[in-house]
Design a protein around this nucleic acid. Structure first.
Length: 387
RNA sequence: GUGGGUGUAGCUCAGCCGGCAGAGCACCUGACUGUGGCUCAGGGGGCCGUGGGUUCAAAUCCCAUCACCCACC
């Protein structure tokens, strides 16, 4: 289906399934493995496009479901498309809203036709079909588009998982007709199919075979990191990631912590997104070389060190823990902004480190030392030195 | 000066038909994985303005006193 190949390998690791690649999009290239900051409502919360660019972000996320509710797809189209509207000229991937069907379950009902739901802020009754979701992403002008899928909760019975896979495949088939037509007409985003199947590897295998039969540009693992134990997530990924076509980009949706990401890279995954760096940043938790640091803790009241002494980001070059703690306690907007900036910097640096290690043949070493540190160190703790 | 009201957690207040001192917010700690600038879970906090009286027992009833608020002169 994809005539010019958008994705190509640059380097593969000898000892694991890790690989470096390049994803060519309509708004520039993405070096993989890559982390994509989440910008659900057409903004990576608290950061400007210029800041994102200076942090080295390549591709960022948007969300069809949220943008459909507000401000509306047609409005964005009339404003010149999502890139122009939000002032970001780099690659954009939009999530379909399948996850919102799971996370906002109280507000919606599902049929084979699509999703009926109530807008979360004004209660309007709305509807999205898999065709709508595909067309809306064409209208938005995004670079990478996701199919509408059904993401079941955890835990879920095998019967329930079978139904979710069935509906995800039915929707994929219907969306692929829209995609085929768009490709004939010219410019079309890179479309990803989404694998479901909960924690049942056999079911995921069948889902992958059917999706590959339909032929998408890339494949995403969905329905993970929905509340299951981390070991189980890795076990399921370990049993199924290698079944995804090797010549297509592989996206692990919603994952995760830095240590989760490197393990998934080792299993052959290329793309990641997660709300943790931005959400935890807004709530006062920083990722550092020595673990998570909750900056509002009293022990930092008079700590004049930066968040992370090994970090070169603007927040670490400029502000002390004591000052950032003050900002959070005083409910000042600069606090969430600076921790978001720092966390995104941390994640993007982490991906650079991973890519570099793969290219230089040091990936296994990096993986080993990461897992060792995970098991042996608790989050950083320092002496209480407030008077 | 006279009359009335109010004093309980850092803040705003409930409890006043005597019977183990409470809530919300704030503070402290933990959680957060395709985002509702949240949300959830736990924790520390008190001479019930002060002094006396009644009672087995007083934040609660009685007397005095201090502080603040309102009205009137």
């Amino acid at each position: 289906m994809s005539a010019p190949r958008a994705f190509r390998w640059v380097h593969a690791d000898d000892a694991t399934s890790a690989r470096c690649g390049i994803l060519q999009t309509g708004h520039g290239t993405v070096e993989t493995p890559a982390f994509m900051p989440v910008g659900t409502q057409g903004t990576v919360k608290t950061l400007t496009p210029e800041e994102l660019r200076s942090l080295g972000a390549s591709m960022i996320l948007g969300n069809v479901y949220h943008l459909f509710i507000r401000p509306g797809i047609n409005l964005i189209k009339r404003q010149g498309g999502l890139h122009t509207f939000m002032g970001w000229d780099g690659p954009i991937l939009t999530d379909s809203g399948g996850y919102q069907v799971f996370s906002l379950a109280r507000l919606q009902s599902l049929t084979d036709e699509g999703v009926y739901f109530n807008a979360h802020f004004d209660g309007r009754r709305l509807f999205l079909s898999p065709e709508d979701v595909a067309r809306y992403q064409l209208d938005l002008g995004v670079d990478v588009a996701m199919l509408l899928d059904q993401c079941p909760p955890y835990p879920c019975s095998e019967a329930e998982a079978v139904r979710a896979v069935g509906r995800t495949l039915l929707w994929a088939e219907r969306a692929s007709l829209i995609i085929a037509k768009a490709k004939e007409e010219g410019r079309c985003p890179i479309f990803f199919g989404i694998v479901q199947g909960s924690m049942f590897p056999g079911l995921r295998k069948r889902c992958i075979e059917r999706l590959v039969g339909l032929g998408f540009d890339g494949y995403a693992m969905g329905g993970l990191s929905v509340g299951e134990p981390k070991e189980l997530m890795l076990e399921v990924l370990n049993a199924t990631a290698h079944l995804l076509p090797k010549d297509r980009p592989r996206y692990l949706m919603g994952v995760g912590e830095p240590a989760d990401i490197i393990q998934a890279v080792a299993l052959g995954m290329d793309l990641f997104d997660c709300t943790l760096p931005t959400r935890l940043g807004r709530n006062g938790t920083a990722f550092t070389q020595t673990g998570r640091l909750v900056v509002r803790h009293a022990e930092y009241a008079e700590d004049n060190r930066p968040l992370d002494e090994a970090c070169a980001c603007y927040a670490c070059r400029t502000f002390s823990r004591a000052y950032l703690r003050h900002l959070f306690n005083a409910d000042e907007i600069l606090g969430p902004r600076m921790l978001t900036l720092h966390n995104i910097h941390y994640y993007l640096e982490w991906m650079r480190t991973i890519r570099e290690a793969i290219r230089q043949g040091r990936f296994s070493e990096l993986l080993r030392s990461t897992l060792y540190a995970e098991r042996s160190t608790k989050p950083a703790r320092y002496e209480v030195n407030n008077a």
